[in-house]
């Protein structure tokens, strides 16, 4: 009984601390926006419109649609959703390829010796330099963008997976071997869980790379998408509009990372030495 009440008090105090921390974070955030508003109003620079103006532009841009589309405007369907789709689609393909290949190479003793330097070199190539190659191969459009995203996002996942698969505890290896664990169980229940922390570190890095490459590929060659709208608003000198796209990209980056972190915390909850700082 005492244990239960103990736990309840602890939970309550944790919740209180969480709420006050949450409130404090938001207070600081609101304060920062207020300072930003004041500074931009005082400076009155055309390049830096006040946040209130950015928000008005953004709301009009995204939420002016009819009720049947949940008030989302055409812009959302024409530009934002395709962009997110390409980013997540390319990333997902990179995850499947990277984890699959990485597990295979990590298990093989000599495989990595053949391809290691090659992969290190591929990873070192700044992915935007390959955009012209993908452009002539796939034409202007989603193919080129997804190819660029996959090429940029796969290396952190692949190399981290190899690292993680290699770092499986030798006691676990011997135990599983002495029980003659069949290969599918061995991979699925011993190797992959042990490699997961490293894999997740690679996933996080490659997700932000995917977002960056989505924007780059759309800035260079695209007929729609967030990056395309961003550069065309700059060319029209419509700065509140340009800023609303920048803010949207910030929100996207924050949101995608937050979702992945939540998934990671749930999946890795069993890990004893897990720090939440990451």
């Amino acid at each position: 009984m005492t244990q239960v009440t103990d736990r309840a008090t602890r939970l309550r105090s944790q919740a209180a601390a969480g709420i006050s921390g949450f409130a404090r974070n938001w207070l600081v955030f609101i304060g920062a926006v207020a300072v930003w508003e004041l500074a931009t109003r005082l400076a009155a620079s055309v390049f830096f419109p006040p946040p209130s103006q950015i928000v008005t532009t953004a709301v009009e841009l995204w939420f002016s649609g009819p009720a049947s589309q949940l008030f989302l405007s055409e812009t959302v369907f024409d530009h934002i959703l395709p962009s997110i789709g390409r980013c997540l689609g390319g990333w997902a393909i990179a995850v499947v390829l990277g984890v699959g290949l990485g597990t295979a190479l990590g298990r093989s003793r000599t495989g990595m010796e053949y391809v290691g330097p090659l992969f290190a070199f591929f990873r070192a190539i700044p992915p935007p330099t390959l955009v012209p190659v993908f452009m002539v191969l796939f034409g202007l459009g989603p193919g080129m963008q997804v190819a660029t995203i996959i090429f940029g996002a796969i290396w952190p996942i692949l190399l981290n997976t190899v690292d993680g698969v290699r770092s499986v505890d030798s006691v676990k290896v011997d135990t599983a071997r002495s029980f003659r664990t069949p290969a599918p169980y061995w991979i699925g229940m011993v190797v992959l869980p042990a490699a997961l922390p490293k894999i997740f570190a690679g996933l996080r890095l490659s997700l932000s790379i995917s977002l960056i490459l989505m924007v780059v590929s759309e800035l260079i060659g695209s007929l729609n998408g967030i990056g395309h709208e961003l550069i065309s608003s700059q060319q029209q000198f419509d700065f509140p509009l340009m800023w609303s796209w920048i803010v949207l990209l910030g929100i996207l980056g924050y949101g995608l990372n937050a979702v992945l972190l939540t998934v990671e915390r749930r999946v890795l909850r069993w890990q004893p030495t897990r720090n939440d700082d990451g």
Partner: peptide, 26 residues
């Protein structure tokens, strides 16, 4: 650290390439 956390958390996820048009102008 606590005071700047919200600002840092807001600035960091903005993909740097999104700032290319802005930086070019400024």
């Amino acid at each position: 650290r606590t005071a700047t956390r919200a600002i840092v958390e807001f600035l960091r996820p903005i993909p740097s390439v999104a700032l290319i048009p802005l930086v070019l102008l400024v």
